[in-house]
Simulated scan of single mutants.
Amino acid sequence: MSSLHDSVVEVFVARFDLDPEAVVPEATFDDLGLDSLSQIELATALKKRLGIVITDDELSEIAVVGDIIAIAERKGAAV
Rank of each mutant, 00 (worst) to 15 (best):
M1Q: 09
S2R: 08
S2V: 08
S3C: 08
S3E: 13
S3V: 09
L4V: 07
L4W: 00
H5R: 14
D6E: 13
D6S: 14
D6H: 06
D6A: 12
S7K: 15
V8H: 10
E10L: 10
E10V: 02
V11A: 14
V11D: 08
F12V: 09
F12G: 08
F12K: 05
V13C: 06
V13N: 09
A14E: 13
A14S: 11
R15A: 14
R15H: 10
F16L: 10
F16D: 03
D17W: 06
D19M: 09
P20N: 04
P20H: 11
E21T: 13
A22K: 10
A22Q: 10
V23P: 10
V23M: 12
P25C: 00
E26T: 05
T28C: 04
T28E: 02
T28I: 01
F29H: 06
D30W: 12
D31V: 00
L34N: 00
D35W: 10
D35Q: 13
S36Y: 11
L37N: 14
S38A: 12
Q39F: 05
I40S: 14
I40F: 15
I40K: 03
E41L: 09
E41G: 01
L42K: 04
L42R: 02
A43K: 10
A43C: 08
T44G: 15
T44H: 13
K47Y: 14
R49H: 06
R49G: 06
I52R: 08
I54M: 02
D56A: 15
L59F: 04
E61A: 09
I62E: 04
I62L: 13
I62R: 07
A63S: 14
G66C: 11
G66Y: 01
D67W: 02
I68D: 04
I68H: 07
I71V: 03
E73F: 07
K75Q: 10
A77K: 00
V79E: 15
